[in-house]
């Protein structure tokens, strides 16, 4: 089959980008989308042209590295699929396909289709952990966790940190990512001790990074390759409100300010 590709080309964050049109001729419907791009790149190299750079690593839908917007939809239109697992059989012969990077102020473009998602790391560093040193741990079964809670935490923890939620959101909001991370640890008894601190610090870092706000459109949930639920955002909103109020109460109890 043949495809016409409109691919984003951008030298670096400072220079402006534009679309280039390339033909992907005689590609097989059994190829994954990224394998098709590999082929296009190989042909570009053979012709002495610069290949396009794009991020990918595991190519089995779990590392969260790949990050392409295909015809306006991050990871393409297949439900619960990362772009590395999107196959060409879901495209029509002769179709024109637009390929762009994630677009958000908090994810500056590094080159072509690669963006810098370090903002996610900084959010995690603000509180996305349980403060337990190696060796501190009690016997694992000493703290029972109900199956429902463990399953719920796992649903949240399934997030692969790809950033498709930010890319698809009309506001470039990182709420689904942050909520998944907060909820994963806030649900579990192991993470309860620093629940309030965690949500406050992570939300504050999220705000500093310049992501937009949640307007509950549900686009993030629909595009998420791990189908993380919008409910976690509600959970985070709740936790944040509780943390704010509790923080104030504690302060007044201590009789101090700020």
């Amino acid at each position: 089959m043949n495809l016409t590709l409109k691919i984003w080309r951008q030298k670096n964050a400072a220079s402006p980008g534009c679309f280039e049109t390339h033909e992907a001729r005689d590609v097989s419907p059994d190829m994954s989308f990224l394998e098709m791009l590999d082929v296009v790149n190989e042909r570009l190299i053979a012709g002495g042209q610069e290949p396009f750079v794009f991020d990918s690593d595991c190519r089995e839908g779990i590392c969260g590295t790949c990050s392409l917007v295909i015809n306006g939809i991050p990871h393409g239109s297949r439900k619960g699929t990362t772009v590395c697992q999107l196959h060409l059989r879901y495209f029509k012969d002769g179709q024109t396909v637009t390929i762009e990077p994630w677009r958000a102020r908090a994810f500056p473009i590094v080159k072509d289709l690669i963006v810098d998602r370090a903002a996610f790391d900084r959010i995690m560093q603000a509180g996305g952990f349980v403060s337990v040193n190696t060796g501190n741990a009690p016997e694992a079964n000493a703290l029972p966790v109900s199956k429902e809670i463990a399953d719920l935490a796992m649903d949240a923890a399934a997030c692969i940190g790809c950033g498709a939620c930010v890319a698809v959101c009309k506001n470039a909001s990182a709420m689904l990512f942050v909520a998944a991370k907060v909820s994963h640890l806030n649900y579990l008894p192991q993470g309860k001790a620093e629940k309030d601190r965690r949500v406050k610090n992570m939300v504050s870092q999220m705000d500093k990074e310049g992501f937009g706000n949640c307007t509950v459109t549900g686009s993030c949930e629909a595009v998420c390759p791990k189908e993380i639920s919008l409910d976690f955002i509600a959970k985070m909103n709740r936790d944040y409100a509780v943390a704010l109020v509790k923080g104030e109460l504690k302060k007044s109890a201590a009789g101090g300010v700020g």
Partner: peptide, 15 residues
């Protein structure tokens, strides 16, 4: 939060 938009300004997905 999104200074540069997507090509063809697609409608908000699944919203």
């Amino acid at each position: 939060a999104r200074p540069v938009g997507y090509a063809g300004d697609p409608a908000s997905f699944a919203a």
